[in-house]
Design a protein around this nucleic acid. Sequence first.
DNA 1: TGATCCAGTTTGTCCTGGACAAACCAGGGG
DNA 2: CCCCTGGTTTGTCCAGGACAAACTGGATCA
Lengths: 321, 321
Amino acid sequence: MPKIRSIAPCNELNTSSMNAPTQPEAAFSIAAVERDTGLAKDTLRVWERRYGFPAPSRDANGERLYPTEQVEKLRLIRRLIDHGRRPAGIVGASVQELSEMLDGCLCPNVSATGRCDDGLLELVRLHRSAELAAALRQTLLKQGLQRFVADTIAPLAAAVGEAWMRGEVDVAEEHLFTEQVQNVLRGAIGTHAANGGRPRVLLTTFPEEEHVLGLLMVEAMLVPEGASCLSLGTRTPLADIRSAAMSGGFDIVGLSFSIAYPARQAIDGLLALREMLPPALDIWAGGAAVRDKQKRLPGIQVVGGLDDTLAALQDWRTRHP
Amino acid sequence: MPKIRSIAPCNELNTSSMNAPTQPEAAFSIAAVERDTGLAKDTLRVWERRYGFPAPSRDANGERLYPTEQVEKLRLIRRLIDHGRRPAGIVGASVQELSEMLDGCLCPNVSATGRCDDGLLELVRLHRSAELAAALRQTLLKQGLQRFVADTIAPLAAAVGEAWMRGEVDVAEEHLFTEQVQNVLRGAIGTHAANGGRPRVLLTTFPEEEHVLGLLMVEAMLVPEGASCLSLGTRTPLADIRSAAMSGGFDIVGLSFSIAYPARQAIDGLLALREMLPPALDIWAGGAAVRDKQKRLPGIQVVGGLDDTLAALQDWRTRHP
DNA sequence: TGATCCAGTTTGTCCTGGACAAACCAGGGG
DNA sequence: CCCCTGGTTTGTCCAGGACAAACTGGATCA
């Protein structure tokens, strides 16, 4: 099983542990880098062979030790590849240049998502979790669930995601945000008693996708419309999606794909799922990875944004009176 | 990055796609098996070399193709290893024998956790999500949050976990259960307004641990006592736990470890974290992986069960009047 | 009895260097 | 404009060797 040899950064000089607020020469094993960057061990080795980067030092036993700054740079490269760049063209660039490229990639997104509440984003940055939770609940009450999701949570999630890509928020802040939003949304969803209304929708993600907020936002849009949603959470194998969908009398299966999900894999998986399910069962796919891919996804309803979810629901109800 | 070449089981004969409700000779790539079993690619290859199992066939390109039944057997073996068995002694056994060994491992657990509500477990098995959610909420109202968690959710989670190990519930059923419990617990936790009470507790898990229910149960036990809990969810790197704990004025950091978490890794990580944090900051560790490990964890409070959480809280308050 | 130590064995992870198919790109025809 | 086609890039897989950490089963000591 994929055991990690060492959780903490390895450091040959960490015998002096008392006065080291941040490790000066921390270095990570290849397994730790795989976990932190999402780049497979094989990929890390083959990049080193081909491009000369990363260039880790070695420990006494000849095993790679990646210094912190190389891991940071790998993270930036990973983000750029998610945005369509290719390794050969960017591994040689400096951290400075990579950051500028990321800004270039992100600006169109910022303008597309529009303004988001900077006050809430600031609460995330300051770790003010209690205030964040209170502010979210207050906004929810003021706006109602659907507008809250579409106008507040979605832009805020996009802003946090972008800040995370730029390295402006850290893991803890991103987790804090996700947890607080989950608490609020799940509480709100739970207050809507399941009434057995149609359509019956099964929501989940493919096994490699672990972002849950997309699913929750869709559920929050559909439940007030009287649809019956069942979420399986993230990371459900294809075969289990199939068996769950067949056994529950569902009308629609909804899949969510974050921006980091490889588009090709999403398309392959969706087409495979389409083959497995009866044609009467609709498949909806949403999220950044499948946006604008409708023409490559025959038989599948691509939902571009949260508002389109409601349009798709209307459409389904028109076709099934 | 760890791209998966094919999500669906590969099948050399799947040109006839119309009449194949379940693939007769489905076979999985090594990456798919890694994902499904949690056994690293390197481990799968070295087992084949050393023990002669698994013994995958090869495709036209010489790459391994694992048939379904071998993947099933690997899953059983993985469970037994999580329970302390070692590969050499069990890879030769039949599926039948492996199942019996699992029964032997599980019986003591069943007796230890005591009876759980079979009605709720049955709802999980039947995919009756709406009824499950309603029954959970009703039980919550009747018992109150703390007794609900300790007497209903904890035994139920243990029962689902055991049934999952035996293969009696599938991925979808386990996900459904987790989602519904999350909805109920997060809703209940959210109704307790954060009042800034002491102690302030930071809750999370190490990066390889993705089970979230343990955290939620602890939070549900502490919040009614007036403690201020902040959960970062699962999979937080050690360095980020440290920075979050230092910046928020916390009194306690709580970590949760499921039964599948390697005990050695938990101990190493906890001791490393203990070094990183100021001594005045308490560390609490709970879950099956650290039970009975108190003597190997100096400076760390091992919390044996949910009820012990309350005892530990009392203890903390006595020491900090 | 129970804890601690020690040789021997088991086991997971990492290494090198080679190979190849799928994805991507650029440049013509239709 | 779209579709095909040949060359390049890129991620993943393979084999087989190596080694440190973890475990086992005894022997020793309190």
